[in-house]
Design a binder for these strands. Structure first.
Length: 459
DNA sequence: TAACTTTGACCTTTA
DNA sequence: TTAAAGGTCAAAGTT
């Protein structure tokens, strides 16, 4: 993980609230080197400062997800997570480290970004994992998602792998995390500025466009811009501040900033403390400190929680129905997974994309992982049906793959989206409006797909 | 009969 | 080198 000597002796050169950069970090910044948690926390704090205060967007420093992943019981997790108010956020960015040894502060070798996404009306709540070297951090991301799910109102929130350009060396994963975070924040701001934008859009395209490597993306470009020096003179300027003992660092009462902290260190942070409640208060206090703006300095405006205008969210929710056609080619129980894993290939003749789906016994999707990218447009949806006869037609096709193609539609039938359709006059649901009970499974699926198609066309 | 799923066997990857 | 686990194939079963 991060590297450096005894941190207590390390000289602090820059701070952003309680996020502090040490002299050894400057060496890392002059790179190319593996980014440590201080730098990641620092840059995320800087990103957060670009947003007006709001509760919708939350960027967490790496220490918080790591702590949550390794707490011994759900009660402790709930106590720590409670002040974060994850359930009420639209987007939560959680850096993930693969350090398996909670006693080893410098363990771990890979950074990725897990996004708790509650901003997309189509996909519904989901975890999106950005890994520049997949599937290296997938177990760690799964562990974090599993810890967070009980804290969220929706059940069985799926985890999907988001498109992430591959790193081409052994050290740029942290840079990729920051670049993805920047792309997401920029997308979020853009979406907020265009209130008429699609509520079903997401940042995945924005991530694809992001320049990714430590040459084209410097996490501290923005920091340089905030300093009274050029990027070239950055190190010299820090040296001067240090020698003058008037460093840019501000007084902080928080934990000594560190490399990725061991679990015991994290626990000590929250335990200077002797009760779960105090743990919460400690974290709340730390967050509050971040939110205190220090006027007139280079590192103002740091907040952990930032937000923008709330996007419009329709009730449309098609879960894993992604517009592509899939053929199932295998299923098996894999070790460490609670549910069977199904293997799918895109049915387009030249498309290499596959996906793995783990589904709960009640049909909800626990996880989706997508292996490449589609090399073709989404297939045209079937022509819009105009009456319940279309339902009969769909059922009569005896399409054995229908349920597979429409994963999630079952849930849609009972969802708020259907209720909305009933109120608003979605044509295909005349059967519902007339009080007809739909007991046949295929009919229910048929109603669901027609409903979704009508909504798509209407949108 | 065609399209699709299921499932056991086999292949590949990884530690 | 080997064993374990994941991924894929393909025959059999189902709709």
């Amino acid at each position: 993980m991060a590297h450096g000597g005894g941190e207590e002796e390390e000289e602090r050169v820059l701070s952003h609230g309680d996020v502090v950069l040490l002299r050894c970090d400057l060496t890392i910044l002059r790179g190319p080197h593996f980014l440590n948690d201080r730098i990641i926390a620092f840059y995320l704090a800087h990103l957060a400062a670009d947003h007006d205060a709001d509760d919708d967007l939350l960027l967490l420093p790496p220490s918080i997800p790591y702590l949550l992943s390794n707490l011994p019981d759900p009660a402790s997790v709930a106590a720590v997570a409670d002040p974060l108010r994850l359930a009420s956020r639209r987007l939560v960015l959680l850096p993930v480290n693969d350090n398996p040894d909670v006693s080893h502060a410098e363990g771990g070798s890979h950074w990725t970004l897990l996004v708790l996404d509650n901003s997309n009306a189509v996909s519904g709540p989901r975890f999106v994992h950005h890994d520049s070297l997949p599937p290296t951090n997938l177990p760690a991301a799964r562990r974090l998602a599993a810890v967070l799910r009980p804290l969220l109102p929706a059940s069985a929130i799926p985890l999907i792998e988001g498109p992430t350009p591959r790193q081409t060396n052994g050290y740029d994963c942290g840079v990729f995390v920051l670049a993805v975070a920047r792309a997401i924040c920029n997308w979020w701001l853009t979406r907020a500025r265009h209130s008429d934008s699609d509520s079903d859009s997401d940042w995945l395209e924005a991530v694809k466009r992001e320049p990714f490597n430590s040459t084209s993306f410097s996490p501290f470009d923005c920091i340089y811009q905030s300093l009274p020096v050029t990027a070239q003179d950055f190190g010299t300027w820090c040296d001067m501040q240090s020698h003058k003992k008037v460093a840019a660092v501000k007084p902080v009462a928080s934990r000594p900033s560190s490399r990725l902290r061991s679990f015991s260190m994290l626990q000590e942070d929250s335990t200077a403390i002797d009760s779960p409640r105090k743990t919460v208060e400690h974290i709340q206090h730390a967050i509050k400190r971040k939110q205190i703006q220090e006027k007139g300095a280079c590192w103002d405006n740091l907040t952990v929680s930032q937000s923008v205008r709330k996007p419009n969210v329709s009730a449309k929710n098609s879960l894993s129905y992604d517009g592509y056609s899939w053929r199932k080619y295998g299923q098996k129980q894999v070790k460490g997974s609670e549910f069977p894993r199904s293997y799918y290939k895109c049915t387009h003749p030249t498309c290499p994309v596959k996906r793995k789906v783990e589904m709960t016994p009640d049909g909800r999707i626990a996880e989706i992982v997508y292996n490449g990218e589609h090399n073709h447009p989404k297939p045209h949806p079937p022509r819009k049906p105009t009456s319940s006869t279309s339902v009969e037609t769909l059922v009569a096709t005896n399409d054995a793959g229908l349920e597979n193609k429409l994963e999630g539609c079952d849930q849609a039938i009972g969802s708020d989206a259907v209720v909305e359709a009933l109120r608003g006059g979605c044509h295909c649901l005349d059967g519902f409006r007339n009080g007809n009970e739909i007991s046949d499974c295929k009919k229910r699926y048929a109603y669901a797909v027609i409903f979704i198609q009508e909504k798509d066309l209407a949108d």
